[in-house]
Design a protein around this nucleic acid. Sequence first.
DNA 1: CTTGAGAATAGACCGACGGTCGGTATAATA
DNA 2: TATTATACCGACCGTCGGTCTATTCTCAAG
Lengths: 246, 246
Amino acid sequence: MPRIIKHPELRREELLDHAQALFLMHGHDKASLNDVIAVAGISKGAFYHYFASKEALLEALAERFARQALAGVQDVLGDLALDPLGRLNALLAKSQQAKVETAAEAWALFETMFRPENLVLFHRINLAASAAFSPLLVEIIKQGVADGTFRTFDPEGVADIVMQFGMATHGVVAKAIVGGDADMDVAIEALEKRVRLYEIALDRILGLPDGSIRIGEPGYVRAVMTARRAGPAASAAVPPKIRKRS
Amino acid sequence: MPRIIKHPELRREELLDHAQALFLMHGHDKASLNDVIAVAGISKGAFYHYFASKEALLEALAERFARQALAGVQDVLGDLALDPLGRLNALLAKSQQAKVETAAEAWALFETMFRPENLVLFHRINLAASAAFSPLLVEIIKQGVADGTFRTFDPEGVADIVMQFGMATHGVVAKAIVGGDADMDVAIEALEKRVRLYEIALDRILGLPDGSIRIGEPGYVRAVMTARRAGPAASAAVPPKIRKRS
DNA sequence: CTTGAGAATAGACCGACGGTCGGTATAATA
DNA sequence: TATTATACCGACCGTCGGTCTATTCTCAAG
């Protein structure tokens, strides 16, 4: 096989891309290293030049995910015109928006993200994302407590709950997805209902009047979700050949 | 090796016991099938006579956990003298009690339960337990809504939140454990603070006056946790030999 | 323009893994 | 006792993640 030399950073990113695709498609423990290097077109030696282990590859992937997610909401903190409630709502809306739009753009990716075999990858991403988001949330909540907007004795705990809600939404999305297209409407209904419940729950936990917290605009989910069905053909429904173990 | 024949159910339970110990000790993907059959003292053929795969073994283990957990709280539902709030509190207290007591009795087991390598097993248990508990919770909440005790438009959603809180508690416990013995007091403090937050959060989500929901008795955690330190020597600190892969 | 140290790549190789298979010993039935 | 079903054995297989040595490319120092 001819030797191909690329810029190291480029190669590393390429490796992450291919690994991401394979991991999401088949689950990180079903996709073998040999699959990764085969798709990436490199040798095992080259792979181990860039990553110390398969585990390290998983870690790097999770980090990249979290970094990208965090970058999407950084600007919310910079908006000094907002009060704590406004900031919190902006953060929640942004995060919600990112989720839904990602789902619309990369449906197949999202679809596979929640399959049980991706639990480990998913958890790693959440771990990294939580570590990144938590300080922001805590800061906002403490600020709100200080100026009397919020009422709670445990800002860190509330921040944890907010993130729990965020992650739990994934679970509901997952159900909506695996449910197939038939009862898509039912699934979207359930998702929006759950979002409304989380809004009210957060209102009450933070000692706010019902209706203060707004996680994205009402109907937004339905709009995007429905749009995707008419969107670019849902290809990638058939995962590329990977020899199955019985 | 001599052939030993045992009653199938006994053998199966034995296998589950040994597998549980090994999985919790080393993580289900680090503990190999060969380890399991070595400890259990049976051949590979015998193992595959009882379980279709390592995966099936994991599944069976999760089911058994969930079954045991459910059995512990079944009687709460049978208590007809209780109103919905009383039932909910009893259920939460029972569940909390079971957790803390398990932690005290089988500390080593609990300690390993939350190590990252047990994520998959842990998730499987939670999945099975959730499926079992959810209907009970939903029933109680609906009952409370019907008689005006609770106020919510989404009993299923609230039930999910309750279970989320329950599982999240594990996370806090995990932090308390990995934190070591030095700051045990700090960890217990954090745990009780979090429990109080969950109580108030549930109060408010269910439209109850603060202080209605009681997840176990105050100080209970500290009492048991502290007791265990003076309890039977914390053996099993050194996991039995298993050859490591680099 | 040479050169040589080190980065980048290749792929043969390794032990352990999960899983299969042909076969044997015991228990149950008649 | 003969037959069948079940419990069990352990050698074997292909694949896995990971290691190792060898080769080729890059580029700065002389």
